[in-house]
Design a protein around this nucleic acid. Structure first.
Lengths: 329, 329
DNA sequence: CTGAAAGCGCTTACAG
DNA sequence: CTGAAAGCGCTTACAG
């Protein structure tokens, strides 16, 4: 493998000069610079990353911590999407991403103590208080992405996340403005607070329009559970004008249940989802839904953690979801 | 950050001894070892990764090269799935994965020349001949995963991939043994040879049973294209007993088209897919399909590249797909 | 069983 | 504008 020393020998200069030339240091004559760059190019030289990291104490790596298990398929789709976008965003900015499932107990500490990353993107609501304390104490740049640590509400944490409450609000308001008054929302049973927030948005919209009738039903966050829930309440469906399911997969379950009960969607009962997964665009009726801004989440998350690493900022950000109107509602 | 020197000072020994103790070098007294390990533990010491990499010329990193664009949604689902599994498999074996979209032209060379990875998992059919030549010339451990480079058929390359031909064969044979004789297969228009291979499997099965009627139709690899193709041939459908669509998404498109044309699936025309994506388990009829062995692909791919890095083996492997019988066929 | 020394491939403060 | 030297944090051949 070719090193700076090899180039120095060929060019008849010192390794210092080679280093400075290749790094475009200002006080080097253009003649030397060009000569050295040409030799480097010809030999296919690239800086040894480990040597640079050791010397500069900078890895250009962002650690991404993800949970080992997902509750459901939905989590997997979401994560897979987000990870792909994180990788790409980081790469575009000259960083790369080191993704680790949280498996061992001291994983975050090891990652930090071994100086393997410059900062952390925490994509995991289950991060232990002990780890968070450690990150803060050591002053490691970090951002909670999408989630904010559930078990550590008291401290002010850095985060970039979606405004779930607003998503619930937009969905509900959409129905209200179309004239519906008896709106059922299907929330999720999960320790994650996103469903609570969406339901809060639902409530706020109703309140704003002075609607007293709240229909809230929480089920497991799956296609099947949502489908079964609707089938079980078949005798009460005549009271319902519209359904806001808090995930797309649940919305698809709801639609299948309604079809089997001979309700037409959206004519008899319109259905709205949440997430905007590809899946929702395939089957008829195409799903109207609230879009999770995954691309934005990735873009802003990567941008902010890099800024934090370079000490430029320290601000939280909440991203708005977006209504996607198709056919189901 | 705590270093080996700090520990040496506290323990009253040399850095060499600390290094050897922490690495469980044989000729160190247990007393010293224990003392030093205790101090290291108390201080939260971890080896500096860059320093170790620089010295040992081993990164414990597997480079994963993926294409920047996917033809279709199917590609994205497949990749997202595979990447997640690769990350996990590598982590379980003490490696990690550095995923790079192929964006710049000299990306693979840079990755190799900067000594950032110990080996490469190539998840990209479009790798340039020049890069392949470079990898082979530099003797970099590499494996083509899933794909084998399209534009470099002549050389013997390392690969781990799915037996697509066998998948096509199994699917077709399943129909034949159920008594169907007029089987349409919907292949994909793609430079990727997987569809050609599946169609070859289809042909082999027909031949084996002396069936002369081949019905082969190639369309874009999308839900819509498959759906439209079936709708366009509505007048010829009466000749068809069964349909083998070469992706699940296409199979779902076929089913939607058949429903709209008032054919019942599987009663009138059974439909088989390929891939076994989650999506296929949601809607009725649940999709019968051929499973792409993604988990195995990841597991074997990671295992083999690590073995290659450690010079243990040099063998290719083809993994068999699996028939998943549900309701649609 | 343990230590001093050299080296991995860079960068940069210091000196000229 | 350029070089010699020290240092980043480890490992290990050599010596004792």
């Amino acid at each position: 493998m070719v090193t700076i020393k090899d180039i120095a020998k060929i060019a008849g200069v010192s390794p210092s000069t080679v280093s400075r030339s290749l790094n475009d240091h200002p006080h080097i004559s253009n003649k030397t610079k060009e000569k050295i760059k040409k030799i480097a190019e010809e030999l296919g030289f690239e800086f040894n990353e480990a040597a640079r990291t050791l010397n500069k104490k900078k890895t250009n790596t962002i650690g991404v911590i993800i949970p080992q298990f997902f509750d459901d398929m939905r989590g997997e789709i979401f994560f897979a999407n987000l990870l792909g976008k994180l990788i790409k965003e980081a790469q575009l900015k000259g960083y790369h991403v080191r993704i680790e499932y949280e498996i061992e107990k001291n994983q975050i500490k090891k990652l930090v103590q071994s100086r393997s990353v410059d900062g952390l993107l925490l994509l995991n609501p289950y991060i232990k208080k002990e780890d968070i304390d450690f990150i803060i104490e050591k002053n490691i740049p970090y951002i909670f992405l999408h989630y904010v640590a559930e078990n550590y509400k008291d401290k002010k944490l850095n985060y970039v996340r979606t405004n779930q409450e607003k998503g619930g609000y937009i969905a509900t308001k959409y129905f209200i403005e179309k004239g519906y008054r008896n709106i059922l929302t299907l929330g999720g049973l999960s320790i994650n607070s996103e469903f609570i927030e969406r339901t809060n948005g639902y409530k706020r919209a109703l309140k704003e329009y002075n609607i007293k009738n709240e229909y809230i039903l929480d089920t497991d966050v799956t296609f099947e559970a949502a489908k079964n829930a609707i089938k079980k309440m078949k005798n009460n469906l005549k009271n319902i004008d519209a359904i806001f399911a808090q995930t797309d997969l649940m919305a698809l379950g709801v639609i299948e249940a309604l079809n089997e009960l001979n309700y037409s969607v959206p004519k008899d009962i319109p259905v709205m989802g949440f997430d905007n997964i590809q899946l929702g665009t395939y089957f008829k009726p195409r799903l109207t839904t609230i879009e999770q801004p995954i691309a934005k989440l990735a873009k802003i998350g990567v941008k902010k953690i890099i800024e934090l690493i370079n000490k430029k900022i320290e601000i939280n950000q909440i991203i708005d979801p977006k209504l996607v109107i198709r056919e189901s509602a």
